[in-house]
Simulated assay, not measured.
Amino acid sequence: MANLVERVAGQVKARFLAESSGHDWHHINRVWRLTRQIAAEEGANQQIAELGALLHDIADWKFHGGDDSVGPRQAALLLGQEGAPASLIEPVVDIVATISFKGAGVATGMQTLEGKCVQDADRLDAIGAIGIARCFAYGGHAGRLMHDPDVPPVMHQTAEAYKASKGPSLNHFYEKLFLLKERMNTPSGRALAEARHQVMTDFVEQFLAEWGES
C-alpha cells in the first residue's frame, strides 16, 4: 500500500508544486492528511481513500474547458502506469469523477465511504481561513472581481450554469462555501466543519462592514 501511495504522491507533487490558483500540491497534501484522519475515524479503506485524495484534482474541470471526464481518465492512466490493479483503479476513479461541487441545486453524493471521506476532506480545505485564501486566489487567477454589490449571488440549479458562472469571488461564499457545512458526509467531517464555517461567516461580516454594506 504505502509504496503505491508514495509513488503516486511523488508524481502529483511534481506536477502541482508550482500551481498558483489554490489547487496546488499543498492543497492536495492537506486534503490527503485530512482524508487519512477522517478515513481512520470512519473505518474506511485507507488505500482507496488516500489515492482518491491524491488524485482528486489531477485534472480539474475548471482548467480543462469544463470537461469533467479528463480527471478520471488521467487518474486511471496514472494508476495503470503504476501497476495498480483494476479492483483498485475503479473505486479511485469513481471518487475523482464524482467529488466536485456542481451547484447549489445539484446533488453530488458519494456512493462509497472512501469517497465520502475524500469529499469531506476536500470541502474542509475549501472553508475556514485557508478556504478564504483559496477563494480569492482562484478569483484572481480567473480574472474575477473581489466583490460587486450590484451582482447578486446565484444559487445555480444545474452543473452547466455553475460552470458558466463568472460572478465575483465574494458571491462564491453564498453560492458554495456557506453550504458545505451541511453537506458533510461523515460525523468526523461535520465536527471539523463547525469552526471553519464560523471563521468564514465572521470574515464575510467584517468584509462587508469595511466595504460599507453593513
Rank of each mutant, 00 (worst) to 15 (best):
A2K: 15
N3M: 13
V5I: 15
E6S: 11
E6Q: 12
E6F: 00
E6L: 05
A9L: 01
V12E: 01
K13W: 07
A14H: 04
A14N: 07
F16R: 12
F16V: 03
L17M: 13
S20E: 14
G22M: 04
D24A: 08
W25R: 04
W25C: 08
H27Y: 14
W32G: 00
R33H: 13
R33T: 09
L34W: 06
R36S: 13
A39L: 10
E41F: 03
E42W: 04
E42R: 02
E42Y: 05
G43D: 10
G43T: 11
G43V: 07
A44Y: 00
N45F: 07
N45K: 11
Q46C: 06
E50A: 14
L54H: 01
I58E: 02
W61S: 11
K62S: 03
D67C: 05
D67F: 09
D68V: 01
V70S: 07
G71M: 06
P72S: 10
R73A: 15
A75W: 07
A76R: 10
L77I: 12
L77Y: 12
L78S: 01
S87I: 04
I95M: 01
T98R: 14
T98H: 15
S100Y: 13
G103S: 01
V106F: 10
G109F: 09
Q111K: 13
C117P: 01
D120E: 08
D122P: 02
I127N: 00
A129P: 05
G131W: 05
A133T: 09
A133V: 09
A133P: 02
C135Y: 06
F136T: 03
H141S: 09
A142Y: 04
G143Q: 08
L145C: 11
P149Q: 11
P149L: 09
D150W: 11
D150S: 14
V151E: 14
V151I: 15
P152D: 04
H156A: 13
H156G: 00
H156K: 03
H156T: 03
H156C: 11
T158M: 10
E160T: 13
E160F: 04
A164W: 05
K166T: 15
P168Y: 11
S169H: 09
F173Q: 01
K176S: 12
L180R: 01
L180I: 04
R183H: 13
N185C: 12
P187Q: 11
A193Q: 03
E194G: 03
R196P: 05
T201A: 05
F203C: 01
F207W: 13
L208M: 12
W211D: 12
G212R: 08
E213I: 10
S214P: 08
